[in-house]
Design a protein around this nucleic acid. Structure first.
Lengths: 207, 207, 207, 207
DNA sequence: GACTAACCGAGACGGTACGTCCCGTCTTAAG
DNA sequence: CTTAAGACGGGACGTACCGTCTCGGTTAGTC
């Protein structure tokens, strides 16, 4: 998301200025922008958040924001991921049932530690803006997909589930249920929900 | 959704104009607004859709829009429901498995007949604006919930599934998976998906 | 300068909206804008005058300014001409010498009643922006030209000056000297200057 | 105009760097800046000329411009005087009439060799910015004043014109007419104009 | 030959203003 | 009482420049 001038050496996105020329990016400004964004977001909601307010509150020129992020959605995304624990450990207990159980528990716990309105706003942006979708997808969706995929593949190898299992649908099942409850608040986001869901999934998939 | 001035006699929000006095509402304008909204929405996306453009393209005064709808989200919602078949028949085959199968097939077929970007935009609005959430929820979510609820209750009565089944989580499972695939395009929205999903759900819930 | 909707019936500039439709232009805003512009102009000078400050100080949306004027130069021009006496009476005494004397005295008196920085700013704009030049020229230059032209033609008819007199150069002589003194403050702008200049001009032109 | 670091020893504005230390000023950059400025000025006009564009087009850091000039007006002034012949020879023919004739012809010829938009821009700046006025005045106005002054004084000494002649007004007459025609393009800037003007002036002043 | 001072390009910085778009409201005449 | 038209005050947009600052590097004279 940021035009990190050196870290992405091989990526060749922006014209790639000869490294280390000119005044370096201000870390202080970067942090101020992200902090202020989160604060305003929590206080006033996503719709009331504007680039202008962020700039004013962070004591920063608007251009400085636009230089490093393309939209408020990207600012919020980075602000959010910087503060939220986005790592998803891959459980590998040796059994499908307990792997799923742990994965779902982890995710449920993660959802509990996160600002629901903020995540909803990010998800809304994802649904509308296909540019943003990629950025959000990489960070929030792809990683989790990978983890579940690994679990399913291991279960297949161990013959705990059929090798003909429709993996994609299984993933919709797990993540769909989790996001549905989270986004629409159809019920509590707790350990009990996690375990009931795990039961359904394991029985359904192992079927 | 519309503040139909007479039909909602008891609601008493707006000053409640004395019944049939003055110039009547222009049906031509109403239709033009809804048609134009859909067209612009498909063409340019939700973000680029503005009240001003709708008014201009429909040859209508802005006030006329604001008199009957509170926001562009409400216009779009009405425009959408006017064109989309939103009825969900309640399957009652006498067996849990086939009920679920039919429900899911129906919904999948419905999703296939609908403009994905439009529905995504409406869902996005739902996630951000709690006012809008109600309107959308009533039309789009609640109905379907009721149908599934009925199916589950009947299955419990028939002892096909446990009376301790976590109904709410079961509903997250079904609708979560469906919405997840639809919103994020994680795979095709076809008969095969419907049936695989139905398998998972029935096995999962029936245990 | 303003898009006077009816006064310019035959001119066919802007699409010519069917008269009297929509909310009429706010006279209060128009006046506030002009007054505030003059005040800020006198206080801070032309360079420090911005559309944004005018809007803020006049309690007016920026768009309202842009709707009726194309640039701050045009606002200032109208503000200025509204307050400054721009009428130039045509002396007709029957004799070249006294006509010239009166004309020059009138203009000198006029210059004395006017804010020099403001006029300098307008003249500067004229030199830079050819669009603006026309507007300014019509109001400030053309009228005076006409008056002098009439005087010269009458003098030729009366044979007070040669019929081969280079009229254009004569006009440069008169207005050049007046503007030069005014713009560059090369000396006092008083009765004595007026009369000395009239002497030079009459002797020079009458030869 | 340039803050030549040593030439103005006694001025003591900037901390007064110890004489010839450090890297010397880049002549290449200086020339590039001046050339590019003129070119852009001719092409796009004064308003569209910005420090940033100059720097970019000259392949120069902005700071380098600001180090040596205080404003774009100063850059343009130097760019202009570097290319334009600004010398004004003092005619001394022994007779008032022929002195005036030659002076005016010289100036007219000079005006003909110069970019009118550029000079207009400089004059405009002069009218607005009193700081700049001095710089421009020294180079462009004062010299010419001196020349005319000398001519008039000699004419008085020779009793060709009265010793009570209003010298200042006479100067407004000559330079006013010249500038008026040049700035406002009220007619051709040629030999004929020069001679007609000279006639008027000589008759008027000698009157 | 190392040191140091002043320059150089590049380009990010906090700001201000630009001119445009849209918001939701208001004010006309017309129906 | 609604309608189309369209002006209104307001706010945010994304861009252009302002003049300053801060990098790594360069080019001289001085130690």
């Amino acid at each position: 998301m940021t035009r990190a001038p050196s870290a992405t050496a091989g990526r060749a996105t922006t014209p790639a200025p000869r490294a280390n020329r000119g005044r370096p990016r201000s870390e202080a400004s970067r942090v101020a922008i992200l902090n202020v964004s989160l604060k305003l977001l929590e206080r006033d909601g996503y719709k009331a958040l504007t680039m202008e307010k962020i700039a004013r509150a962070a004591g920063v020129g608007k251009q400085t924001i636009y230089r490093w992020w393309r939209s408020k959605a990207e600012v919020v995304l980075e602000a959010f991921t910087a503060y939220a624990e986005t790592e998803v450990p891959t459980p590998d207990t040796g059994a499908f049932r307990s792997d799923i159980e742990r994965l779902i528990r982890n995710i449920v716990r993660g959802f509990g530690q996160v600002s629901a309105p903020t995540v909803r706003a990010l998800m809304a942006e994802t649904l509308i803006d296909s540019e943003f979708r990629k950025a959000f997808g990489e960070i929030f969706v792809a990683r989790r997909q990978t983890v579940l995929l690994a679990i399913l593949h291991r279960a297949i190898k161990r013959s705990e589930i059929s090798e003909h299992t429709d993996v994609r649908t299984a993933m919709d099942l797990v993540y769909g249920a989790l996001w549905h409850r989270f986004l629409h608040e159809t019920g509590p986001m707790n350990r009990n929900f996690a375990d009931r869901l795990a039961d359904f999934v394991v029985d359904g998939v192992a079927g």
